[in-house]
Design a protein around this nucleic acid. Structure first.
Length: 472
RNA sequence: GGCGGGUUGGCGGAGAGGUUACGCAGCGGAUUGCAAAUCCGUGAAGACCGGUUCGAUUCCGGUACCCGCCUCCA
């Protein structure tokens, strides 16, 4: 069996991965809060973990991996949107409007992640379907002395969990010392965090022992991972920015509520995506969604390639140049492998690279070296989610456009071919090639490859063919 | 202030204590009227300062700069 190594943030070291149950490898990825389109940064963990899931399925068997990714569909940003719609006269209860908004966003999310070739998880639990389980978990925490109710709020008592801060390497005392946040009156300690908070009539709420309210952030992941994966599971993943407080709080909640379990054994955190060296954020104005890129005509497969061309634990810069290079590479690979029968098993070096802490950049470099063996290239590339049959529409589309244009402008192309041949004949005699070069240059500028062999002249539209730019 | 990550050739980006990363671009050659495409070949690196070592870009310590988290955020 292939030995997989992963960098475990919890231990800060690269470890050999040993599943609790090789018959059912279980992993959980923190999914989106569904209030808006996913931005490119949201896509990075999804694509990285997709590769991990493909690897695990390859190694342990397709049916021996359980992949869970949640939808957090209770959140104040969602509430704000719904409330605004209601005030604008939208019919239905606030709950209806929230459901509408989250349904819509989940649909977008699916479409966008599908476009990146990310396999859907086995389970996509929604927080609002697990309110009862969250309430039960909170009650357990109160009974165990790990949480307390005050003024309709329930708070986690950070001092009750000695390990608090271990994942992120912080101490409660240091954090309190460095904190300048105002302390809510209902908190025993500044670092205590909300498990449950009250909802007034303008906010969605559920009945609970502490009155009508809604869950705080963090508890949904603890409740849903417990329900679907048990009190101990293999891998928990997400962006490094979730390490604190989200994952720290998850650990505290889960380990205190289910002390018999160890919660997640391996923690994987991907580094941030940057744009022009800065974190992508709305305030910096360098924010864009996956859909923005797709709408610009950038194929999802190309976005995927760029995301995987940098190791997941390093910051990654999104640039136009990388995007163009990725497109060219994928175009070439698709041409090479067109109609080729895939090899039975992927190249072992690809497997080795991915098994070494998901070194997708190394794996891509090995793919380059497989160009002489298209069959092997195809199978190996598919382990990373490239060259999948369903992901090639962009190229078929581009080729199709080119083809149809060729048909529609067939006369023009034929004419151009003839003119080129004639001009060349003339040029060969007069030794004046300027007219020929000028015409050829304009055809090349339109994205057409000009092949002038001794025997004939061929015009072959390439990936950037633009018939509108053809000379008349 | 606390915690964490980064700094590799023109650009992107990996591994490995000593041997070619790889891709793009460049350069030389074959081919071509010239190109394109293809093929062959090739130069170029590891922020800075120390330490360990026979030998470090690779390990250790420090410095500088960049980025992130500590507040909603992948």
């Amino acid at each position: 069996m292939v030995e997989i190594k992963l960098t475990n943030t919890r231990t800060r070291s690269k470890e050999v991965f040993q599943p609790l149950d090789a018959g059912n490898v279980r992993l959980y990825l923190c999914g989106p809060t569904v209030y808006d389109r996913a931005h490119l940064g949201n896509a990075r963990p999804v694509v990285v973990i997709d590769v991990l899931v493909r690897l695990l399925r390859h190694v342990y068997g397709a049916d021996h991996v359980t992949y869970v990714r949640n939808f957090t569909d209770v959140d104040d940003k969602i509430n704000a949107t719904a409330l605004a719609r209601q005030q604008a006269g939208a019919p239905g209860t606030l709950e209806d409007l929230i459901r509408e908004r989250t349904e819509e966003t989940i649909g977008w999310y699916h479409a966008d992640m599908d476009a990146l070739g990310a396999t859907r998880p086995d389970h996509e639990p929604r927080a609002t379907d697990y309110i009862a389980q969250m309430i039960a978990m909170i009650q357990t925490l109160i009974e165990g002395g790990h949480a307390y109710a005050r003024d309709g709020h329930v708070l986690f008592r950070v001092r009750s969990y000695a390990e608090y801060g271990r994942l992120s390497g912080r101490s409660v005392d240091d954090m309190i010392a460095g904190a300048r946040v105002e302390v809510a009156p209902f908190k025993e300690e500044p670092m205590d965090f909300v498990l449950w908070k009250p909802s007034d009539a303008d906010l969605p709420g559920w009945d609970s022992p502490w009155g009508r309210g809604r869950p705080g952030w963090h508890i949904e992941c603890s409740a849903m991972s417990y329900e679907l994966l048990g009190d101990s599971f293999d891998i928990h993943a997400g962006g490094i920015d979730l390490q604190f407080p989200h994952h720290e709080n998850e650990i505290a909640q889960s380990c205190c509520a289910h002390p018999q379990g160890e919660f997640a054994r391996v923690w994987l955190h991907n580094e941030m995506l940057q744009v022009e060296g800065k974190k992508m954020s709305k305030s910096l104005g360098n924010f864009f969604t996956v859909r923005d890129l797709l709408d610009q005509g950038i194929p999802g497969e190309v976005v995927r390639f760029v995301l995987l061309s940098t190791h997941y634990r390093k910051p990654m810069d999104w640039t136009e140049e990388k995007k163009d290079q990725a497109r060219d590479v994928l175009w070439e690979w698709r041409l090479i492998t067109d109609g080729v029968e895939p090899a039975p098993i992927p190249d072992q070096r690809i497997l080795a690279a991915l098994s070494d802490d998901l070194n997708t950049a190394e794996a891509i470099s090995i793919l380059h070296r497989l160009k002489d063996d298209p069959s092997q290239l195809l199978t190996s590339a598919r382990l990373l989610g490239f060259l999948e049959p369903g992901m090639g529409q962009w190229m078929e589309h581009d080729l199709g456009v080119a083809q149809s244009m060729i048909v529609s402008v067939d006369e023009v192309l034929t004419d151009l071919t003839g003119r080129l041949a004639g001009l060349r004949q003339l040029a060969m005699e007069t030794k004046d090639f300027s007219a020929l070069d000028e015409l050829k240059g304009r055809i090349v500028d339109a994205g057409v490859e000009v092949r002038m062999s001794k025997a004939n002249v061929e015009l072959i539209p390439g990936p950037r063919f633009d018939p509108a730019r053809l000379p008349q």
